[in-house]
């Protein structure tokens, strides 16, 4: 059906970019490609806004490309719920895409959340499958800067890496449930700043209290590069933590449901009818749910 797939396999980036647009616009779907081996294919990098996810990812991409890997990145930023527009700002941090030699081994695509809630829209999963199918070795998803309760990235990735920053005060942060329970690894960035070491210690403590199968906590500085080489090679062989199996499926079910509702052709008009009092919430929801078997 689609000779863009063939073109993309042969390295035509424009064809690839267009395929991804079609997926994003709901015109095309991709399912999980069969993959040999037990290593991960899709990794989500998540954590609070401004902790340095993009800077760290840029550093790690330099390392991974040196290892001979070809890596695609889907960098998600939030859409404004009011205008529907978005400023997709992760690219500015990515020096690797402007590196004359390494840029061939990296594909970066900025993605807006559009109407979905949470830190990653589910179409990103199809986009990742497409990238794998046309020959990229691995896909990294940088989520929207996310609070501890935004665990939706579990629905789209094989591995979850939580990036944290220096302690913000009281140590209570580390006790919070959510992302921390799902993470396969934790990286504390900005080790050049006060409080990073302390926060890493707090996290280790609270993780070990919770479980014997606790993820490692790594300390890095994306600004100066300290610890980055170690962290990047650790991530390549990262195993999935057993703690999170059920939570992953839970998130996958929830985001699948949300996607079905959002892709209903009447979604916008039903929303408007509720708002204008022309239809009850219950009736509108029933129509959305039933129209989408």
């Amino acid at each position: 059906m689609d000779n863009r797939i063939e073109a993309a396999k042969e390295g035509d980036r424009r064809a690839l970019a267009r395929l991804l647009t079609s997926i994003e616009n709901g015109e095309l779907r991709f399912s999980e490609p069969h993959s040999g081996g037990s290593d991960w294919k899709i990794l989500a990098l998540t954590g609070p806004p401004g902790v340095g996810k993009s800077c760290l990812l840029d550093r790690m991409l330099h390392e991974w490309v040196d290892h001979g890997l070809r890596i695609a990145v889907l960098a998600v930023d939030p859409s404004s719920p009011r205008s529907g527009g978005a400023l997709l700002g992760d690219r500015v941090r990515m020096s690797v895409v402007d590196d004359d030699i390494k840029k061939k081994s990296v594909y970066l695509r900025s993605v807006a959340t559009r109407k979905t809630s949470g830190s990653v829209p589910l179409v990103v999963r199809d986009m990742a499958f497409c990238l794998l199918q046309v020959g990229w070795d691995k896909v990294i998803i940088e989520t929207v800067g996310a609070g501890p309760s935004e665990v939706r990235c579990a629905a789209v990735a094989d591995r979850i890496v939580l990036v944290e920053g220096p302690a913000r005060g009281d140590g209570v942060q580390a006790e919070k449930a959510g992302l921390l329970e799902l993470a396969d690894a934790v990286i504390v960035n900005k080790s050049d700043l006060d409080g990073a070491q302390r926060h890493a210690n707090e996290l280790r403590e609270s993780l070990h209290l919770g479980h014997e199968d606790a993820p490692d906590v790594h300390l890095v500085s994306a600004l100066y590069g300290d610890g980055v080489a170690e962290a990047s090679s650790m991530l390549l062989t990262l195993e999935q933590s057993m703690r999170a199996g059920r939570a992953r499926w839970r998130e996958r079910l929830l985001s699948h449901h949300e996607r079905l509702l959002l892709e209903h052709p009447e979604f916008d008009s039903l929303l408007m009818k509720i708002e204008e009092g022309l239809m009850s919430f219950e009736d509108a929801y029933a129509q959305l749910r039933d129209g989408n078997e």
Binding site: S83, G84, G85, L87, L88, V92, S110
Partner: peptide
């Protein structure tokens, strides 16, 4: 920013 507020998805190069 203005184009974002008008509903577009904007990628700034730096």
């Amino acid at each position: 920013r203005a184009l974002r507020d008008a509903g577009h998805e904007v990628i700034y190069t730096g």
